[in-house]
Computed example of a mutant assay.
Amino acid sequence: MRIAFVASETETAQAALTRLTGRYGQCPAPDGTVIVALGGDGFMLQTLHATEHLDIPVYGMNCGTIGFLMNEYDEEALPERLAAAEEEVINPLVMRAGDRVGGVQTALAVNEVSLLRAGPQAAKLRITVDGRVRMEELVCDGALVSTPAGSTAYNYSAHGPILPIGSDVLAVTAMAAFRPRRWRGAILPKSATVRFDVLEASKRPVMCDADSRNSVRDVLWVEIRSEAAIRHRILFDPGHGLEERLTREQFV
């Protein structure tokens, strides 16, 4: 087993990297059979994005805080843990965003794509699904489209639904919806393409963001869909996979 260790810049993760590479060796990520990411959920997302061109599973060990996408940190018998780990496959979202100067930017998101008001007034958005307008006007602080893997992150804090990891659906969730009053969002097929058009864009500016990594300001429209051609392979200890974690989260 050829292990490629990567670590966040925190002191804890860097110390773990030194110990683990000294014990188990180190190889470049393209040559590895598995990537072990040391850090928190943010670093796990960073690692998945950085290695999306490699067909190599990623096993996270928590050196951060929440660690929802990570396994418990333990330096003992790591090759045996990796051999016994269960794999989850996640397809990311692809975001295309058109801005006010005519540019179009593209980014990928493992968790969610979010739109947020960028000024003092609420955003006004039109929602179209697969070419059909479903909501003429949503007045809100923002809205997001989430994958099942990201449904316990930003989506959940915005009171969106927790989605089973094996479900072929996406969540559309509003943040502080003013009109329609108390609109709680929608669950759509994974195959759907969701488009947000920004109404009154000069008066009510909006920005969009993919996994809190790729921000685009002054957007006029954003299209979001699942990208089946990209597969993120994530490893979890037996009995502690995403399905179990998502279920457990609902009974806390």
Rank of each mutant, 00 (worst) to 15 (best):
M1E: 07
M1S: 12
R2T: 11
I3P: 01
E9I: 00
E11D: 14
A13Q: 04
Q14D: 12
R19A: 15
G22C: 12
R23I: 13
C27V: 15
A29H: 04
G32C: 13
G32Y: 05
T33W: 05
V34N: 03
V36M: 04
L38T: 00
G40M: 11
G40P: 03
M44P: 07
Q46D: 05
L48I: 14
E52N: 15
I66L: 15
G67N: 05
G67S: 08
G67A: 09
F68Q: 00
L69Y: 02
E72W: 02
Y73L: 15
E75A: 14
L78R: 03
L78Y: 05
P79F: 13
P79W: 09
A84V: 09
E86P: 07
E88I: 15
I90A: 10
N91A: 10
N91Y: 10
L93S: 00
V94R: 11
G98S: 15
D99V: 12
L108T: 08
V110R: 02
N111L: 06
V113Q: 07
S114H: 06
R117T: 07
A118P: 04
A118T: 09
P120M: 12
A122K: 04
I127K: 03
T128H: 08
G131C: 01
E136Y: 04
E136V: 10
L138V: 11
V139S: 07
V139E: 01
D141E: 13
G142R: 08
A143Y: 06
A143F: 08
V145Y: 03
S146M: 07
P148H: 05
A153N: 06
A153C: 06
A158M: 10
P161R: 04
L163C: 13
G166C: 13
V169Q: 00
V172L: 14
M175S: 05
R179V: 15
R179N: 13
R179P: 02
R184E: 14
R184A: 15
I187M: 09
L188H: 01
P189E: 09
R195S: 08
F196I: 04
F196V: 03
K203T: 13
P205F: 09
M207G: 08
D209M: 06
D211W: 08
S212K: 08
S212W: 04
R213K: 10
W221N: 12
V222Y: 07
I230F: 11
R231S: 12
I234C: 03
L235R: 11
G239Y: 00
G241D: 09
E243S: 09
E244V: 12
R245H: 08
R245A: 02
R245M: 05
L246F: 01
R248M: 07
E249T: 14
Q250E: 15
